[in-house]
Design a protein around this nucleic acid. Structure first.
Length: 342
DNA sequence: TCGCATGATTTGCG
DNA sequence: CGCAAATCATGCGA
């Protein structure tokens, strides 16, 4: 017979107590020699505590705390409680890593919101932006920095919220733990139970954390889609930029492939990016080739323009810069027909 | 509102 | 990777 079965037997014997026995110190003393009745008596006293005044209850509490049977009773009650609680929620007890929260964590890490500070973060953001852009060498200057600034903002809010959350969680956990420890002097609360309560609190708080992570992810997604939209949105270059590009194109018609340096210079002149210059030349070449006739007028215009410009500097230079001159294997040069026919 | 112009993106090749 | 070619998507004038 172990302690618990003995205990249960003692509980079964409760029915034998008369109302008059309860609260009578003499009868308690008389029964000390009989474990079963003794325990039953203590239980009755505990149950009756709520009916008493505060002072009486405090006194009774103290008396019970000092009772020599208290530690044994306490541990047995803990054990019983442990068994019932376990049977009720034993299954929920395991805490498998939530796949949802892991997914969110991974995304936040990939976006550079969570994880290491500034350096790694912005690098990850740049990587994400580059991945989002997809096109090689897309060095979107202004939009990119805008995106990074917005991301940093989200990151800051996320971290401050996370900090608040962690503080609240630990504060609350401490509070509950202190409360339970305090109560464990009068109620059968085992350390294991406190542990479980802490786990429950953490679970509750982690659902809040998940909400925070989820909304952060959403914010990042919205930012990203906006950024992508902005990149996708086409804006015509200004007249001056088109002029500069066209001038270069028609004055290098035999070989309209600007070098990297030339592209950089054109980009600077037109206040656009190098990749935009590349795009422009790619489009121009293909469209010019497809329909030379259509570009005839434009070609003549720019040919004259460059010729005039060159002439103002040097008479020979106009010859060298003429689009018709260096035409070995290049694009067909336009003929100077007034009606635009080849 | 329609159709063309045009900048950006995608795809495939060497 | 740089390019050609095709395609997408928006700007803009008629």
């Amino acid at each position: 017979m172990d302690d618990q079965t003995r205990m249960l037997a003692g509980l079964a014997g409760l029915g034998g107590l008369s109302q008059g026995d309860i609260g009578d110190p003499d009868s308690v003393r008389k029964q000390l020699g009989q474990p079963q009745q003794d325990i039953g008596d203590i239980l009755q006293q505990i149950m009756a505590i709520t009916d008493e005044s505060l002072d009486e209850a405090q006194a009774r509490k103290h008396a019970l705390n000092c009772h020599r049977m208290k530690p044994a009773l306490f541990s047995v009650l803990c054990e019983i409680k442990e068994k019932t609680v376990l049977s009720i929620r034993g299954i929920q007890d395991e805490d498998p890593p939530d796949p949802q929260i892991m997914r969110l964590d991974n995304m936040l890490l990939a976006e550079g919101v969570s994880g290491p500070e500034k350096g790694g973060g912005s690098a990850a953001a740049a990587a994400a932006a580059a991945a989002a852009g997809g096109s090689p060498g897309a060095d979107g200057g202004i939009e990119h920095s805008d995106y990074r600034a917005k991301l940093a903002q989200i990151r800051q809010i996320y971290h401050s919220e996370l900090e608040k959350y962690e503080q609240a969680c630990s504060e609350f956990t401490n509070h509950v733990m202190n409360l339970l420890r305090e109560q464990s002097r009068t109620r059968p609360i085992s350390p294991k139970e406190i542990e479980r309560m802490v786990a429950i609190i953490h679970r509750k708080f982690s659902s809040i954390q998940m909400q925070l992570k989820q909304s952060t992810c959403e914010a990042v997604m919205i930012l990203r889609s906006r950024f992508l939209d902005a990149r996708r949105k086409r804006r015509n270059f200004n007249k001056q930029a088109t002029e500069v590009l066209n001038e270069y194109f028609y004055s290098h018609l035999s070989n309209p492939y600007p070098s990297e340096e030339a592209k950089e210079e054109l980009a600077k002149k037109c206040a656009i990016t190098v990749s935009q210059v590349s795009n422009w030349f790619g489009n121009k070449r293909i469209r010019y080739k497809k329909n030379i006739g259509k570009f005839q007028e434009e070609a003549n215009l720019y040919a004259v323009k460059t010729a005039v410009d060159a002439a103002s500097v040097s008479a020979q230079a106009s010859q060298a810069n003429s689009p018709a001159t260096p035409n070995s294997g290049g694009y067909p040069a336009p003929c100077y027909t007034p009606d635009g026919r080849l």
